[in-house]
Design a protein around this nucleic acid. Sequence first.
DNA 1: GTCTATAGGCGGATAGAC
DNA 2: GTCTATCCGCCTATAGAC
Lengths: 248, 248
Amino acid sequence: MNSTAQGVRARARIEVTAAIKDEARRQLAAEGAAKLSLRAVARALGMASSALYRYFPSRDDLLTALIIDAYDSLGEAAETAEAAHDAGAEAGPVRRWAAVCEAVRAWALAHPHEYALIYGSPVPGYQAPEDTLPAASRVGHVLIGIVRDAHRGLGLAKPRLPAELRPEAVRMAADLAPDLPPEVVAALVAAWAQLFGLVGFELFGQFNRVVEDREVFFRHAVGQLAHGVGLVYPQKGRAGAGETAGEG
Amino acid sequence: MNSTAQGVRARARIEVTAAIKDEARRQLAAEGAAKLSLRAVARALGMASSALYRYFPSRDDLLTALIIDAYDSLGEAAETAEAAHDAGAEAGPVRRWAAVCEAVRAWALAHPHEYALIYGSPVPGYQAPEDTLPAASRVGHVLIGIVRDAHRGLGLAKPRLPAELRPEAVRMAADLAPDLPPEVVAALVAAWAQLFGLVGFELFGQFNRVVEDREVFFRHAVGQLAHGVGLVYPQKGRAGAGETAGEG
DNA sequence: GTCTATAGGCGGATAGAC
DNA sequence: GTCTATCCGCCTATAGAC
């Protein structure tokens, strides 16, 4: 009985927490992260504002929860898209890359305010805690995974790397993907940033009166990005450089 | 005398307007655009809040003025950088491209909050009027100009263009640069968005714990972007495709 | 866990005197 | 153009009863 009672309480707590976050997301859309207000959330939920403090000790904690949720939601979308194009084993790294990029764009279009929360301007006065890091890196890990598979499967050409950038590329590779050549990791990080540049420009209105058929434009652009990191179509065969990972 | 009096008044008005905008920019840094408050600006300036309404009829008008100023400031930085590398006539399109990109990045690092205002998440509830368009397109026009010169001077290789994208590319070219091949215009628009992706990621903290030597990394990445739009070093000579503009 | 009440602020915008 | 006064709203956060 004791455990049942606790179970009920725990479940109620989870449900109320979810309701608070849902309402907060609604307000994010209406007013933006900077004006997210515990009071307004409480009002909409028919609670006293002070009651919310039992769930989130401060406005910033609520914001952190929303940020982590958003990163996780986007990360899951990317992982799902990748898995779907992984089924045939040899779907081709370029296709998988494109599928993940398009999933990122689709998620952003479907959740513009959450996208703005995580990839838009920082919320003034809010300092993200370390807790957000694992969720924040999920999309990056998906992209790394695709390139890693291509590297093992010869679907990869090594981009060029000027001497000036080599130390930084080596450092990044050690941190992010020790099994990949530094050339590739440097190109990958650039492509990652550029991908979000494309998405952000569409979402934040910079493409208004410039790009009309955004879907086609985006598809083409991310294909170029894939090319930039060295991904090649497997049927077109050979990699541009001789080196290959030892784990064959 | 009449005209002198008007001149004095006009000058005073300009000075007060500038003071208001300066203080507003300070607040932008502290609180963000969403919380920009006429009252707070007035307080800092020692004026009654109602007095500000003689200068800016609403908070949004002040915001619009700040946005236009920011676009103009950035545009001027880009134009200056381009002009500096234009002097030797044949500085090379890749160098000019890189100089402009680096000027954009430098401006962004020097004015992070103004950058967030124009390229970050939109301010909730604020709708930018058409007035911002000319200022907003200055950087784009600089990039177009570099590519146009390269096209005239044979420093340009035509990127590939899939059939799917051709109609949109033709439309964009007609709008933005009728004298350039659609292939190039499409690649240019993508590079433009990707440039700001790189800058935004650095500025908004996505490169924290990922990229350390940002300057070198950025320089390399924008070199790749130049390559993507078909810019080539003049001494390396020949363009990849046969077509050339007729205005030789 | 939820409530009311309270402290001590903040905001946009307008009216009307000077 | 600037002021005071005003309307009417908003906020974070805490205290203490139930």
